[in-house]
Simulated assay, not measured.
Amino acid sequence: MRTGGETDSKPAKASAAMEFLFFLLFLVLLAAASAAGLTADSRDSADWKPTDNGRRWRSGTC
């Protein structure tokens, strides 16, 4: 018999465990897709300019 102050935490624990497992599965699938070459970098070349001690390098040709 249950007293009034007790709550059943099994559904909450099961829900949290399933949420964690789905998140872990998502990360594993993303890593597998990346390893298989199925992902692409969406950044353009502006994100990859060289830096000198953290400052953006500028060429003199512009």
Rank of each mutant, 00 (worst) to 15 (best):
F23I: 00
T51N: 15
L21C: 08
W57Y: 11
T3C: 12
A36N: 10
N53K: 14
T61N: 15
T61I: 07
R58E: 05
D8G: 00
W48Q: 09
T39W: 01
F22R: 14
S9P: 04
L25T: 13
L29E: 14
L27E: 08
M18L: 12
L24R: 14
D47K: 10
A16Y: 04
L27Y: 06
N53R: 12
D44L: 00
L25K: 12
L30P: 06
F20G: 13
A17T: 13
A36M: 10
L24F: 04
G5T: 12
D47E: 11
F20K: 15
F26T: 09
W57G: 00
D41L: 00
P50N: 03
A14E: 13
R55S: 06
E6I: 08
K49A: 14
R2T: 04
M18I: 01
S34T: 09
P11G: 02
K49D: 07
D47N: 13
V28R: 09
L38P: 01
S59N: 07
M1A: 13
C62L: 10
L21F: 08
K49E: 06
S9N: 15
T39I: 07
S9L: 14
K49M: 03
T39D: 02
G54L: 02
L29M: 10
E6V: 05
L30W: 04
A33K: 14
F20T: 08
K13Y: 06
D52S: 14
E6G: 05
T61A: 10
A46H: 07
G5F: 05
L30S: 12
L29P: 00
D41W: 06
A31L: 13
G54R: 11
A33V: 03
F26W: 09
S42V: 06
V28E: 07
S9E: 06
D41A: 05
L29N: 13
A31F: 04
D44S: 08
A14M: 00
L21K: 11
S42M: 07
S42Q: 11
F23S: 14
G37S: 09
A16F: 02
V28G: 07
A32R: 12
L38K: 05
D52T: 11
T3V: 08
K10V: 00
T7G: 06
W57D: 01
A33Q: 05
L27A: 14
W57R: 05
R58N: 04
D41K: 05
A32T: 02
K13N: 06
T39H: 11
A14G: 02
L29S: 09
A17M: 03
D41T: 01
D41S: 08
L24D: 06
G37M: 04
L24V: 08
D8R: 02
T51C: 12
R56Q: 14
S59F: 00
L21Q: 08
A46P: 00
T3W: 01
F20L: 15
C62K: 12
T39Q: 11
A16N: 06
E19F: 09
S9G: 03
A16W: 00
S42W: 04
S15L: 13
E6D: 04
S59H: 03
L25N: 13
D52A: 14
F23W: 10
A14F: 00
V28D: 14
D44M: 06
W57C: 01
N53L: 03
A40Q: 12
A31N: 12
L24Y: 02
K10I: 01
G60P: 02
A17R: 05
